[in-house]
Nucleic acid binder design. Structure first.
Lengths: 212, 212, 212, 212
DNA sequence: GAATAAGCGAGACGGTACGTCCCGTCTTAGC
DNA sequence: GCTAAGACGGGACGTACCGTCTCGCTTATTC
């Protein structure tokens, strides 16, 4: 899916094999630099230095800056994210669980930076956002959709609502909030705001589990 | 408001006066370049060339790239936008009018580019988005709020809704839609999507004016 | 004659004028680096650093490494050389004067290095040697030819000799000597060797002025 | 004499033995590249590629670029050269034979290139020229010296001349000629020039064998 | 209307990052 | 242990902008 330099055609390619640790070191460094400086601000030099690697080594492995960052985004869910995604919450997802996870995530300054950088690079490199959508947003939307379906089954939501549209409204508003108004975006504020949104949307989770 | 180089303290300063046409030519060029390349991609050299002006002339008038772009954004509402804003629609706003205007605006590729660039420059230069918020979004939110209030007065919306939250939901979802999914964003698609959103939010404008 | 970047078409070109001191600083540095490392070893970076100048400044003024070195060679006669060339000796040249000047010159390690580098770059850049021939060797051969003509007039040389050939023999042998055998090439050795050559060629200068 | 990597101490070393053909292939390639690009322009990569060999193989056999080229020069007399050197002419050498051989040799562009490259690398790598002197020039000077001695015995040269000096004069002038003036250096021109030189030096070979 | 002072265009200048190319060393697989 | 293949760190290349500076020329205003 991500364009890498060498296709592994032969079973065992001749010559010294690549050091796989270097791949992850570079990807980690690349995501960091991307978050801090945006795509235009990503210099292979910086990435290489931060990864403790020669510049040529980076050029050898990725055909372009875009490929590198795309892969970094695809693989680069922070450890915390991963935990949430594979926790029991995700399987027995509840609306409350989604609200909790979302509050934690979007109240992180790093997360907001990455999203802002991604949106900023849409005009020149739409593939980056596409990768993010596939690798990050889609699975999370699925979990949230499950939670909403279940809530609807339990009568906490009106029957005639469109789940996808609900997700857009929720996700859009929260994105709008954390990107456009940068103040009042601590975790508590976010959670309160989310509850307000849900009330507005007629999602009443209070009967199931008390909100903070 | 915008940081300019020389405060005009004296009524008439000695020496050759600045050519005021140059200011607007530079601002127009700057906004263009910003939209096309993002803030990092804005080079004074390009802006100057596009404005038909020497580099020095730009540096003499704005203290930084950020100041220049901030002013360009503040002044740079396109002609079409301006017309909508000052039309009678804005004073006797209806929900339909808002939907119409919004559909036109967000289905423009140029508009979407600018918004994406602005979001992308939030981490480094939040002032740009702040300027946009004040100069562009706030007045439009006010018009939309008026329309919603009026619709509520006419019983087209539930009484117990929070207008600000409604605006966030609408604005957020539409932003989410046009930035994140790049397909299906022609004017017709957008209008249909907006109507779906409004249905979901319980805003029933159909009784007043037929939708396209 | 030497290819420079900008032709002085206009009387006074617009913009900031070039600093002429920089030209000579770069040429001096370039000749030094050429002597030390040869043409392939000349890096614009080194030249610039030694001249105390930015790399771009060098690229702005010369279109290629070859042009730069060619000009450096054309202008780069050391001060000592220049003195000899315009001294009364050159006008009332005697064979002894030529021998003296030649001994001093070719016993300098720097001189020998430059000549070696020049010969080494003939296959790739014959223009360098051509420049050296025109700017350096031709005038000196002229002086030496005068001295030989005068000596012939005084009966110190046989009548039926060919001056050009004599110059080739003398110049060639001395070059052969100082380049191929690197030992025994102090000033005294050179002078003695020169006298041997002249004896072999039937040039008897001893009647006029005692040799060292 | 030439510094090689492995001294063959043991009669038969364990493991796979080196392929001796590779040595000569590399040396041939090395001399070629040296002639074309000079010492600085010699890259092990190119040499290896031209010899059809991996880079490692070259590095394993020679400790440095200089060693490789030195050996290439020592062994690399062209086939034509070799023939001349071991022909009866060399034993019963005549002045005419020397003139003929020299004309052929120095009118070859390849020969002139090699000599120029060698001189150019004197400042950094005097050993190369020393090798050339020993392996190439010394034996040829010996043959020429024999020819001159014999000519002197036959009364074709004055008695009181110094053979070594004569060789320097001849060799120097011819080198001077073919390196410094690049024009008029076809085989015929060279031969005529040589005859002029000999006339000037009082060497009269015409009585023995007619010149072309 | 001459002097003055700033505007303006043009280009020099020092500097930084770029992506490419080659270098010499190293590490692996296979013979 | 030799050979081929390629990874790896490193250095220089020539280019493209950048922001500052220094010129000559122009253009209003002020004395």
């Amino acid at each position: 899916m991500i364009h890498k330099r060498r296709a592994t055609t032969r079973r065992v390619s001749p010559g010294r094999p690549r050091n796989p640790d270097i791949d992850s070191a570079i990807l980690r460094a690349a995501l960091e630099v991307f978050r801090e400086n945006g795509l235009d601000g990503v210099g292979i030099e910086q990435v290489a230095e931060r990864a403790g690697v020669a510049r040529t080594t980076v050029y050898r492995r990725w055909i372009s800056k875009e490929s590198l960052i795309a892969e970094a985004i695809a693989k680069g869910r922070g450890a915390a994210e991963e935990k949430v995604l594979h926790s029991p919450i995700s399987r027995h997802a509840t609306v409350k669980g989604v609200v909790d996870a979302l509050s934690v995530t979007v109240s992180s300054a790093e997360y907001r930076q990455i999203v802002a950088r991604l949106i900023g690079s849409i005009p020149d490199h739409p593939r980056l956002m596409a990768v993010y959508w596939q690798a990050y947003l889609v699975p999370r939307r699925k979990i949230a959709a499950n939670a909403l379906e279940q809530a609807r089954a339990e009568g906490l939501i009106r029957k005639d609502t469109d789940t996808e549209i609900l997700l857009d409204l929720l996700g859009g508003a929260i994105m709008y909030r954390v990107l456009i108004y940068p103040d009042r975006s601590g975790e508590k504020d976010i959670r309160l705001y989310l509850l307000k949104l849900m009330k507005e949307l007629g999602i009443d989770d209070s009967k199931r589990a008390g909100s903070t």
